[in-house]
Design a protein around this nucleic acid. Structure first.
Lengths: 112, 112
DNA sequence: CGAATACTGTGCCATAGGGCTAAGTATCGC
DNA sequence: GCGATACTTAGCCCTATGGCACAGTATTCG
């Protein structure tokens, strides 16, 4: 065990916060400045910036500053690591014998 | 904004830890007892149990105690919420006009 | 019965996460 | 140039997380 994927870890941690998932959703519709994004969330700018930096640090978005405005854009490719992880899971469970499961734990015999 | 999905949040938070993702991978190959699982990780049983309880609390696994042994099994269906979220993302970005992006950010353009 | 096994419960600790305020820097618009 | 705008930096606070040790409970086995 111990798969040690720094990358995967960062992405999942980044996605574990509802604010950041919302930012990603919003950016799915196209790029936006930090200010535009921040306006939609009930928190101060500095707090919001932490989320932006975290998203960028983990490669989920890309930002660029032009003048005094920092614009953010989604990096679609990065979400693929989640997709890949799910695909791996499916691969694993599809190739198992699958017999025992229903005998060991089962909805019917759940409560002790 | 503010999508407020308690469910989604729990699942992502649960997946944000490498130990828990490893447990899920392991359980993909079939059910296992807490002891069996714990043996593969460099931590004490009580610490490991926290992960087990968290995975169960968020519906990613289901456990049942028989005698002194608690057996854990994956709940495949639960990972679907992640799948759904990804699908929603795709849906969003596929239906956008898509024009502006390369003009706003992006130094030298990646892939459309 | 008594010892070993397999958890379970409790409590402590250190760090990281997410929020705030206050103050600073760099453009932009007039 | 000067004020407004758009972040940025710094520092503080509180809670949650993930780890530990140690003691307790419930089964199972000889």
């Amino acid at each position: 065990m111990a798969q040690y994927s720094e990358e995967l870890d960062g992405v999942f941690v980044a996605l574990a916060d509802p604010t950041r998932r919302d930012v990603i959703r919003r950016l799915g519709r196209g790029p936006a400045s930090v200010g535009e994004l921040a306006r939609e969330f009930p928190m101060t700018l500095p707090s919001f910036m932490k989320h932006v930096r975290m998203l960028e640090a983990n490669g989920l978005i890309r930002t660029a500053k032009s003048g005094r405005v920092r614009t953010c854009a989604l990096r679609r490719d990065r979400l693929a690591v989640v997709d890949d992880w799910l695909a791996e899971q499916r691969r694993i469970w599809e190739q198992r014998t699958d017999r025992l499961e229903r005998f060991v734990t089962d909805p019917k015999e759940q409560q002790p």
